[in-house]
Design a protein around this nucleic acid. Structure first.
Lengths: 335, 335
DNA sequence: CCTTTCTTTGCAAACGTTTGCAATTCTTAT
DNA sequence: ATAAGAATTGCAAACGTTTGCAAAGAAAGG
C-alpha cells in the first residue's frame, strides 16, 4: 500500500515502466484502455510520484530558496507569505533559512541550498560584495535580492528607494517645524544602511537643515543597538541638541523608545520620533510614525519575477525601486 | 568549473566513481595518497555533492516540512525561527508552506510535501480528524502538531494548556472585579478553539460567575471576524451586559479593538479587554493585556523533539502541555 | 616460496524517474 | 493481399549518488 512505485504498478499489469510513466504523466499518447488500467491501479495503491527521483532526472527541484536575517519580523514574514502564495501556484515550494543576520550562517545555508539544487534564490543578504550568492548567479539560477543589494554586475533586486525613504522622513519632520534631526542608522557597511544615511544627508542639505555628525548614531538593526544608540544621542544632547529622531529599522525603533522612556522623557512631548517598518496593529493605541516598505507589494513582485525568470532565463539584471510609504502617527509633534 | 560530478573527477584521475565517493565521504578507508589527490581535484573543481541524488539513494532528504496557517504572524514566525535554528545544526532544512488557514490549501501542500519525501512534518493544522497528515504518520514519519491537535491515536503535539489559558484570563478578570465576562472564540470546530471555550466555561463555573450563552461570540481567527463578533456583542449589550471581554486570538483582538473604537467606547474605561498572543513591542505605549504562548519555548521543544524522533523512530505519541503566560497590560481596569 | 591476511580498488546494482529510439501491432488504403 | 502509415509499447540509458561484494595487490607469517 504505502509508497508504491512505477515499477510495482508495471509489474502487476505486465507493462513496462515507461508505459506506466507515460500513462500517469499524460504527456505522451497511451492506449485509452491501458491508461485506464494504470490509473485505476495507481489510485488503488495511492501511488505518489517520487519528486526526488524526478528532480534528479529533470535537473530541477521546483524549489525556491528564501534566505532572510529574521523570519520572525513581520516585514519578512509578509514577504515570505506572498512569495509562497505566488510560486506555489506553479508547483514550487519554499526552502527557508534564517541567518540571524550573520554572514557565517548565511554562507552555511547557501551551501546547503546549493547542494540541494534549488532552482532559484531570494536573498536578504548581509554580504556586501555578493560573493555568497555568486555560485547561484554564475550557475544561471535566478537570484533576487530584497533589502541589501550587493555591488556587482547584473543583479536582480526589488527594494524600496531607500534614499527617498530618508528624504520623506526628514521632509516630514521639517514640515512639522523640526530643525535639528538626529538619526540612527543600521549599518553603513551595507547598501541599505548606507543609502538611508546618504538620503538623510542629502535631505538635510536640500532642505537647508543643519548638519551635525554628532547627530548620527549607528546600530546593527537589533533592538538592543537602537537602545544603545539612542542613549548615546541623549547623553550628548547638550552638545548636539535635537528635537526629532529618525530611526531606520523596526527593532531599533523599539530600542530607541526604550531608551527614551528610561531617560524619563516622553514621545512626542520631549522628542519626536519617526521609525521604520513599524506596524500599528492596534488602531486605538499609540501610533508610531513610520516610514514603511510596501512588503506585500514587494513579496508579490518577487514572486512574479521569480516565475518569469524561472520560465525564461532571459534578461539582464534589473533593480526595481518601489516607493516607500509615510505613515504619520502620533509620535511626531509640531514645534 | 561549475557543477562537477564524481564521475568527472573519477575519470580525470582514472579512478572508479566509488573510490572517489569514498574518498570524499571519508566513511570507508581509502589510500591516503589517492584521497589527497581526489580532495585536491574536488577542491579545484569546487565539487558540490548533489543532495538530490544522495537523497534518492538514502531515502532521506534531510528536510523538515513546516505547514502553518499564517507565517506573517509573529507567533508562527518565532516558532519557525527556533525550529530552523535547532534542526539546521544537524543538517536539516525547512520546507515552508502557508495555508492561509484553508483546508484545501493544507491538503495541496501536504501532497506536494509528501511527494518531495520530507523526513518529518510540523503542522499547525486546520484539519480536525488528522486525515491530511495520516499518510505521513502511517509512513512512519515524525509529525508534530502545534496549535490544533487532531483527535486521533498516537499523536505527537506540543501546545499550551488551552483550558488553563482561558481559566487564567477569566480568573484575572474576576480578580479585578469583573462579573460579566464575554468571550470571542476562534472556532469551536477545532481543538484549540473548543478547549479555550471549554476552559472559559469551566472557569465561570468554578469561579461562580454568571454564565450566559449570549456572551459567547465566534469568529475564525481573522481580524475581520473579531471586529464582527465584537460588534455583535456590543449591539446586544443591553440584553447581555458585560464589563470585560476575553478575545482568544491576536488578530481577532485587534479586530475587537477596532469595533470598540468604532462604537466610540474606550478600553479600559468602558470595557476591559484581555487578548491572546498579543505582543507589546513598544514598552512606552498602550499595553494590551494578553494570554500568551511561550512561542520560543514551543519552537525549541519542537526542534528538539524532531531531532530525537528523526534519530530513533521510537516512542508513542506524546502531547506536551506548556504553561500559558499572563501579561497584565493596561487594558483591564478594576471595577 | 606458498599461504594467509589486510589494504585498496572496482564492478554493478540500486534508488525512482524520464525519454529518445526502436520494435511491435493494428489500421487502412491500394 | 500487401504495403504504408499510425498507434502503442518496450528497451535502455540517463540523472548522481551509495554500498555490498569481489577482485587484485601488497604485506606478512610460516
Amino acid at each position: 500500500m504505502a509508497d508504491s512505485t512505477l515499477k510495482q504498478i508495471a509489474k502487476e499489469l505486465s507493462l513496462s515502466v515507461s508505459t506506466v510513466s507515460r500513462a500517469i504523466n499524460g504527456k505522451s499518447v497511451v492506449n485509452a484502455d491501458t491508461k485506464k488500467r494504470v490509473l485505476e491501479l495507481a489510485e488503488k495503491y495511492s501511488y505518489t510520484p517520487n519528486e526526488v527521483a524526478r528532480s534528479l532526472q529533470k535537473c530541477s527541484t521546483e524549489t525556491v530558496a528564501v534566505v532572510l536575517p529574521d523570519i520572525s519580523e513581520n516585514f519578512f514574514g509578509t514577504i515570505v507569505k506572498e512569495i509562497d502564495s505566488a510560486v506555489s501556484k506553479e508547483g514550487y515550494m519554499l526552502l527557508l533559512a534564517d541567518t540571524h543576520e550573520r554572514a557565517d550562517k548565511e554562507n552555511k545555508y547557501l551551501d546547503m541550498l546549493y547542494k540541494r539544487q534549488v532552482d532559484a534564490l531570494v536573498l536578504a543578504t548581509v554580504d556586501i560584495d555578493g560573493a555568497s550568492s555568486a555560485r547561484f548567479r554564475n550557475g544561471g539560477k535566478p537570484v533576487i535580492f530584497i533589502d541589501n543589494v550587493p555591488k556587482a554586475e547584473n543583479i536582480d533586486a526589488i527594494t524600496i528607494d531607500n534614499k527617498k525613504a530618508s528624504f520623506m522622513a526628514v521632509e516630514y519632520l521639517k514640515s512639522q517645524g523640526h530643525k535639528n534631526i538626529a538619526t540612527i542608522i543600521g549599518s553603513k557597511e551595507e547598501t541599505t544602511g548606507a543609502e538611508r544615511l546618504e538620503g538623510y544627508r542629502d535631505a538635510l542639505k536640500k532642505l537647508c537643515l543643519s548638519e551635525n555628525e554628532d547627530l548620527i548614531a549607528f546600530g546593527d538593526y537589533k533592538r538592543e543597538s537602537g537602545y544603545i544608540a539612542m542613549k548615546k544621542l541623549l547623553e550628548n544632547r547638550e552638545n548636539a541638541p535635537f528635537s526629532a529622531v529618525f530611526v531606520t529599522s523596526e527593532k531599533m525603533t523599539y530600542g530607541a523608545l526604550d531608551a527614551i522612556k528610561e531617560a524619563s522623557l516622553s514621545v512626542p512631548e520631549d522628542i519626536s520620533l519617526i521609525g521604520f517598518d513599524v506596524h500599528e496593529r492596534y488602531k486605538g493605541g499609540h501610533k508610531i510614525a513610520s516610514i514603511r516598505q510596501p512588503e506585500e507589494e514587494i513579496g508579490k513582485l518577487v514572486g512574479k519575477q521569480l516565475l518569469s525568470k524561472l520560465k525564461n532565463q532571459n534578461a539582464d539584471g534589473e533593480h526595481i525601486l518601489l516607493e516607500p510609504l509615510l505613515y504619520k502617527g502620533d509620535t511626531v509633534k509640531a514645534v
